[in-house]
Design a protein around this nucleic acid. Structure first.
Length: 634
DNA sequence: AAAAAAT
């Protein structure tokens, strides 16, 4: 399967351009259908925000919510295998998500989903998110989203779950009642079949359980947490809002580590919630706050935000978290690393957000180092750990190469690669190439040098204005500047279709960062190429890089193996705690070294009445991974 | 050591 490097480039380019590389990307769906729906809807009187609990009622009638009976939110709607799990008991002993939540389930006159579409709505005011991107053509759209995912590659994907009473996976969206509106949006997105992470995560989340999920970005994890949140809000309790107050009370909070990723999540969430009567608002720094405040004032059910701007909004009392029922951290390991952790802790623990167990918490990332899992467990209640592994499957679609390049040779070497892509490519255009460097200054200077040498490039990093950053991304996506020089701001989560080649001009120091970077190509089942420039300065990465590549059935150069070996039996060498080959993730609760203190790790220990973890049937058997593994992608 | 994230 794997051939020469030149072939790899050519293949990646073919793959990138087969669907029209200059066309924009992320948009989904069927303009005609959506437009027809819009046209058919009645004209609104006003654009005033209508809170979810009022949207499916006649204006004058407001029923008092009826306390829910015994079972979980959607027990009645779920297949028998998916009933609210007994493992979902809280310290107090009551059923998990419905306790103390009047109207959480079943109070809405039988809970028929269709009822939400009636009455006075402002849906026709809702901008159709499926038509947002300019040059949408069928050709450009095909092969986006799930339609392009190579499901064959997923068939044998290893999956590991642990935790109590894990709900079984589904194999179709139809098996779970997400509601008519969401189902319609799934259709508009042309999602035919859930991806592996969706198959497992959606039933877990719909059952109300907390979740820590290791899943490769690009495998549909945004949808995996958005669908349950949206459908949960639609059947949820009233979100009250005080008259005269400018404070808003979102039901769900989705946090991400970069502004661009928040923007992207917002765009996706808007598609998933289109005409569902659920409002999604995004807030991030670097942009004027006033417009964001206006959006918030129009009402918000789901708030997507970066931490700094959210703290600002909280301190201004323009947002309150006291109604949060769903908390999602995307790129959760990044959110909890040294730079971010205090801010996240402040938001989650020191503002007015309901405590764990009172809310549903979901953490997603492609990598999950053990020590970060330990931190994360502070936020989780009796959670399920899910790892969608990748052995010999989807990530094989990324061809990884490492080349030994001295610092002084990097620029000319890059030039050679870029030239080769031009010459070998089927298109006269340059294939989209994402070049990662270490520093912001380095990014600027490399961009300048590339432009001077006839390669149209732009750059994205934290010293640029937000406008410049977003412009750079647009210009790259459109192919206007097919080379993007980036710092790690672009390493995580960004879905940039048609990236044929990721170049690690400067390798990161952490193998997890490498994993995230190369994940910008080979997305959604497409093939991609990743080239790394390695030299003496990167020797600390040699071992984990060699192991990772071996793991992914990549060709490991002998010189790299020698580097790795030299480090492993040097004094005190040993495995880096954070590194090691990653396939599947491993629940840190299963590590014997953690067992003694297990009570610390899942929900404050002794309070809840369930069995101890060690006694849980899922434990101890069937691990497909290496015992030493600490993180995962996919 | 660098990058990101509020003004």
């Amino acid at each position: 399967m794997r051939t020469s490097w030149a072939d790899s480039v050519a293949n990646a380019e073919n793959s990138a351009f087969a669907t029209g590389a200059s066309a924009s990307t992320n948009n989904a769906a069927n303009t005609n259908t959506s437009a027809a729906v819009v046209a058919a809807a009645p004209r609104p009187d006003r654009a005033a925000y209508v809170p979810p609990h009022l949207r499916n009622r006649a204006p004058a009638v407001v029923e008092a919510p009826v306390p829910s009976p015994i079972n979980g939110p959607s027990a009645a709607k779920l297949p028998s295998g998916l009933r609210a799990p007994s493992g979902g008991t809280r310290p107090g002993g009551g059923p998990v998500r419905d306790m103390g939540r009047p109207g959480f389930g079943g109070s809405r006159g039988g809970g028929s989903w269709g009822s939400r579409s009636g009455g006075w709505d402002r849906r026709e005011r809702e901008v159709n998110p499926f038509t947002n991107d300019e040059e949408t053509t069928d050709a450009a759209f095909d092969g986006q989203e799930n339609t392009g995912i190579n499901f064959d590659a997923y068939e044998d994907i290893p999956v590991e779950t642990s935790g109590e009473n894990v709900p079984p996976p589904v194999s179709t969206f139809a098996e779970i009642d997400l509601g008519d509106a969401v189902n319609e949006n799934i259709r508009r997105c042309k999602y035919v079949k859930p991806t592996p992470v969706q198959r497992h995560a959606i039933p877990i989340l719909v059952a109300g359980r907390d979740l820590m999920a290791c899943a490769q970005t690009g495998s549909g994890k945004t949808a995996a947490f958005c669908f349950p949140i949206i459908s949960g809000i639609m059947r949820g309790p009233p979100s009250h809002r005080q008259r005269g107050s400018r404070t808003v009370y979102p039901s769900a909070l989705i946090l991400s580590p970069t502004r661009e990723l928040s923007i992207q999540i917002h765009e996706e969430a808007r598609k998933f919630s289109y005409q569902a009567g659920v409002r999604v608002v995004v807030a991030y720094g670097g942009a004027p706050i006033n417009q964001q405040l206006r959006e918030l004032e129009r009402g918000v059910d789901i708030l997507v935000a970066t931490p700094g701007r959210l703290v600002d909004l909280l301190e201004r009392a323009r947002v309150s978290l006291q109604n949060i029922r769903y908390l999602a951290l995307d790129e959760a390991d990044r959110m909890l690393d040294m730079g971010f952790e205090p801010q996240i802790r402040k938001i989650v623990e020191q503002m007015d957000m309901p405590t764990r167990g009172q809310r549903q918490t979901m953490l997603f990332s492609a990598t999950f180092p053990r020590e970060i899992q330990r931190l994360a467990s502070d936020f989780l209640f009796n959670y399920i750990f899910l790892a969608v592994g990748r052995v010999g499957s989807s990530t094989d679609l990324i061809v990884q190469r490492v080349e030994f390049v001295l610092e002084s040779d990097k620029r000319s070497h890059l030039m050679d690669l870029l030239h080769a892509q031009r010459v070998n490519g089927t298109s006269a255009k340059q294939a989209l190439t994402l070049v990662f460097v270490e520093t912001k200054k380095g990014a600027d200077s490399l961009e300048h040098w590339l432009c001077m040498n006839g390669f149209p490039a732009t750059t994205i990093h934290g010293d640029r204005t937000q406008q410049e950053r977003e412009q750079a991304l647009r210009s790259f996506k459109s192919g206007a500047t097919p080379i993007l020089v980036a710092t790690d701001v672009a390493a995580r989560g960004l879905d940039i279709p048609h990236v044929a080649h990721v170049v690690n001009f400067d390798l990161p120091n952490d193998i997890d960062d490498y994993v995230h970077r190369i994940g910008r190509t080979g997305r959604a089942g497409k093939s991609g190429l990743a080239t790394a420039f390695f030299n003496e300065n990167n020797s600390s990465l040699s071992r984990s890089l060699a192991e990772l590549m071996q793991e992914a059935n990549q060709e490991v150069p002998q010189w790299l193996s020698r580097y790795a070996a030299a480090r492993s039996h040097g004094g005190g060498g040993g495995r880096n705690r954070r590194s090691g080959p990653r396939f599947g993730g491993r629940d840190f609760r299963r590590d014997s070294s953690n067992r003694s203190g297990a009570g610390d790790y899942f929900g404050g220990g002794s309070g809840y009445g369930g069995g101890a973890y060690g006694a849980s049937p899922g434990y101890g058997g069937g691990a497909y991974g290496n015992p030493g593994l600490t993180s995962a992608w996919d």
